[in-house]
């Protein structure tokens, strides 16, 4: 259940950014969560909904962009089939994850400034 500690960091970061901009309200919080990030999206949302009360995120729905995981050969860029052995069938190189596949990112905050 590390989702709660992630949400704690997320909300603290949003609040710090809101303070830095002297924001009167936060309107949007967008996160990007990769399939191989180790974060359960449902638990993440539940943790957010539990934690946001009394914070700058109280009235903000969490927008979650989910990224499907994909592996490919770093040399010849050939994609590796889902569930297959993680080395390139052509050149044998160990596969590398596509960008975003394991992301746990705070993408955008939209806030209201006076």
């Amino acid at each position: 259940m590390h989702e709660y500690s992630l949400i704690q960091s997320l909300v603290a970061r949003v609040e710090a950014e809101a303070r830095a901009h002297h924001a009167v309200a936060v309107h949007r919080v967008v996160v990007k969560i990769g399939e191989l990030s180790g974060v359960d999206p449902e638990l993440f949302r539940t943790a957010y909904d539990t934690y946001r009360a009394g914070t700058a995120c109280e009235r903000v729905e969490l927008e979650m962009r989910r990224v499907e995981a994909a592996w490919r050969c770093p040399a010849c860029r050939r994609p590796i089939e889902k569930g297959a052995v993680l080395s390139c069938p052509a050149c044998g190189a160990p596969a590398a994850l596509d960008e975003g596949s394991d992301a746990i990112l705070l993408e955008t905050i939209e806030m209201e400034v006076p």
């Binding site: 970061r13 924001a23 905050i109 209201e112």
Partner: peptide, 21 residues
């Protein structure tokens, strides 16, 4: 005096949530 309609400002961060860790 600077009063008036508030402005919506998007802040693009693309930052790891675990950046502190």
């Amino acid at each position: 005096c600077g009063c008036g309609d508030p402005e919506l400002v998007p802040v693009e961060l693309h930052e790891k949530i675990l950046a502190g860790n």
